[in-house]
């Protein structure tokens, strides 16, 4: 943008990528974008992914999701929204589930990441993977790795006694039931809407009755 634009032109000029509510707000974001573009830098990041110690040179703006998908060719982790709203990118970091699109890879230097590829393989399926197939807990399959990783996280959270929004008694041991499961899995959207089958699959592995 040239510096001699009048205020009127300035206000009419919008940074195109910004889904702007106000025109002046867009310009602010355009300026920020310039700063960001200049600030980009590569940083070596050490990650332990599915048990493998790796060092990758990553643009510091790279999300954990894009590090996995674009740099490590681990495309089982899916990009559904890239803004933490759908759960398709769920992985385990140090055993806890996380939306990998909402975190930068460089923030996880030295940490252990588990992706769907590390949970089980076609020859040796994890019980959750086997149950998803048996209960038809998916259709298009795009949200599926996230659902399964999220389910793995849920089972661990319950075993650690972590309560949820629908846990009635915060002092008693947490017991998994359908209501708990649905609440805890609600960050993982399935547009094919395989929800009843997903719940059946996880219930099967968790070992409780509906």
């Amino acid at each position: 943008m040239s510096s001699n634009v009048g205020r009127r032109t300035f206000l009419k000029t919008t940074a195109a990528a910004v889904l702007a509510a106000t025109e002046s707000g867009s310009n602010l974001q355009a300026v920020n974008a310039q700063t960001i573009a200049k600030a980009s830098s590569a940083a070596p990041t050490r990650l332990t992914v599915n048990g493998n110690d790796l060092t990758v040179d990553l643009d510091s703006r790279t999300t954990l999701l894009d590090a996995l998908r674009e740099h490590l060719q681990l495309t089982g982790t899916k990009k559904g929204c890239d803004q933490g709203q759908c759960g398709a990118c769920t992985v385990l970091v140090e055993g806890r589930r996380i939306n990998s699109c909402l975190t930068l890879a460089v923030m996880h230097d030295g940490q252990a990441i588990t992706t769907i590829e590390g949970l089980g393989t076609p020859d040796k399926l994890h019980p959750l993977q086997r149950a998803f197939v048996a209960h038809d807990g998916f259709q298009c399959g795009y949200c599926t790795p996230g659902q399964i990783m999220s389910a793995a996280g849920v089972l661990d959270e319950v075993s650690r006694g972590v309560p949820s929004h629908v846990t009635r008694d915060l002092t008693a041991a947490v017991r998994l039931n359908d209501t708990e499961l649905r609440e805890r899995m609600s960050g993982n959207i399935c547009r094919c809407a395989a929800y009843p089958n997903i719940v059946a699959a996880i219930r099967d592995v968790a070992g409780y009755r509906a």
């Binding site: 009419k12 940074a15 195109a16 990528a17 910004v18 355009a30 960001i36 573009a37 980009s40 643009d59």
Partner: peptide
């Protein structure tokens, strides 16, 4: 890279 493309997209100025 994706990061480069996204950042550069924000530098396209449309009037």
């Amino acid at each position: 890279t994706f990061e480069q493309a996204r950042a550069a997209a924000a530098l396209v100025v449309v009037t």
